[in-house]
Simulated scan of single mutants.
Amino acid sequence: MSNLKGLAHLRMSLDDIKSATNDFADNRILGRGGFGVVYAGQLPTTHRSACEPGTPVAVKRLNVNSHQGDKEFLKEILMLDSCKHKNLVYLIGFVSEDTERILVYKKEDNGSLDKHLGSTDLTWEQRLRICLGAARGLEYLHSSVGTEHRVLHCDLKSSNVLLDANFEAKISDFGLSKIGPKNMPHTFLATVPCGTLGYVDPEYAISGVLTKESDVYSFGVVLFEVLCGRLATVVKSKDEYEFLSRLVKKYYAEGKLDDIIFPGLVEQMKPGSRELFSNIAFRCLNQDRKLRPTMRTVVKELESALEHQLINLDDDEEIIGLSGSIGVYNGHELVTSLCFTTNKRKYGPFNPEADNRFSGSWDAGLFDGFYGRHGSYIDAVGCCLKAAARPKAQS
């Protein structure tokens, strides 16, 4: 493949991959699909890359008879080589020798999200953080990969959201992705519909017109998978499927959404968190794509849902301490994380902590709660006072 000449820094030898996977041994298989087989392995000492020898890897060996041909193989390499974000999967390298087409990724310890949907061990807070991470990754693809173009994923689903050791979400599988212009609010591409049953935007499936809002629809389905603890499509019989999107619309319209939320989650949810999450997820499924939110809006709403979940002080609870860390963003020193300590518990940290940390005491008093917005840094924070102590309005 002559188009791979500029990607020498990612090229790996077939011998290295055979060594990493014990010659594609069956006991190394992580999963199978129409594209081929994924194997677990470890980087051999002979390979030079940004990752240390022994790094766990996931090796996707493409089936030569699959729908993913050389075009999709090259597209995924180019996409992941140029798109760098903490919520996207990390491509270590590739193999292209004779008929072998292999992609090598950093292996994420907790596998794919679809395997955890029905787990009672996955708390509502963890589910919120996973959704927020995936949303940030998709928002990056739509808005931040370049000044004149955006990436449309085209196959977003829970099995394409990987989870690292800390359950941080990583969007994967870019073989069907498209690049579109960014200089218009509703970028669209005429294309043969692709994607996975149950996740595909209905308007895209009918018209063949792909937009970034098509990704938003698919992401809405993933949000409801996380909320309901089940996959988007359930096979009821040989020729009959039950689609989660239809089920959600029915129960949402009847005001009975709680009836299909995964057992045990309702008790964990703060009302404000549940309302914000379900509302933004439902907006993603709007039949009219022009009424769907942008991924930037989805990120902000999920941030608010997480904050509502984390912050809810008891009547006898007072804040007694404040801590956090300082980092540099665009040349400016800014607060990158915050923790609040009360006489009962610690809240936070909100955002990953940097090395330069601070802490201090907070006089007990009128504090009743806090709220804010954060992305790469804390860009808004506010405090709530106890109702009885708020100043009376002057006539």
Results as ranks from 00 to 15, higher is better:
residue 69 G to I: 07
residue 104 V to P: 03
residue 51 C to P: 00
residue 6 G to Y: 00
residue 107 K to I: 00
residue 63 N to M: 01
residue 75 K to F: 15
residue 40 A to S: 14
residue 4 L to D: 04
residue 47 H to P: 03
residue 53 P to L: 02
residue 40 A to G: 06
residue 37 V to W: 03
residue 90 Y to H: 12
residue 6 G to M: 00
residue 111 G to A: 01
residue 66 S to L: 06
residue 66 S to V: 05
residue 74 L to Q: 07
residue 94 F to H: 12
residue 100 E to R: 10
residue 67 H to K: 15
residue 9 H to T: 12
residue 45 T to K: 13
residue 41 G to R: 02
residue 76 E to H: 03
residue 7 L to S: 07
residue 81 D to W: 10
residue 41 G to F: 06
residue 80 L to R: 09
residue 107 K to R: 14
residue 68 Q to M: 09
residue 29 I to G: 04
residue 116 H to F: 12
residue 82 S to Y: 14
residue 28 R to P: 06
residue 4 L to I: 03
residue 39 Y to W: 08
residue 67 H to F: 08
residue 10 L to V: 03
residue 32 R to S: 15
residue 82 S to T: 13
residue 53 P to W: 00
residue 66 S to K: 07
residue 26 D to C: 09
residue 23 D to V: 01
residue 14 L to M: 06
residue 82 S to V: 14
residue 75 K to R: 03
residue 32 R to F: 09
residue 76 E to D: 06
residue 17 I to W: 05
residue 52 E to L: 07
residue 25 A to L: 09
residue 112 S to A: 15
residue 113 L to C: 08
residue 24 F to R: 11
residue 59 V to S: 04
residue 87 N to G: 10
residue 45 T to H: 13
residue 67 H to T: 11
residue 67 H to V: 14
residue 45 T to N: 04
residue 78 L to K: 08
residue 108 E to L: 14
residue 48 R to W: 00
residue 73 F to G: 03
residue 43 L to V: 01
residue 44 P to M: 00
residue 12 M to I: 02
residue 25 A to E: 11
residue 35 F to G: 05
residue 107 K to A: 15
residue 8 A to E: 15
residue 79 M to W: 01
residue 36 G to W: 02
residue 8 A to H: 12
residue 6 G to C: 01
residue 66 S to C: 08
residue 51 C to S: 11
residue 84 K to I: 15
residue 17 I to T: 04
residue 64 V to H: 15
residue 21 T to V: 03
residue 75 K to Q: 10
residue 57 V to F: 01
residue 6 G to P: 11
residue 73 F to Q: 06
residue 108 E to A: 09
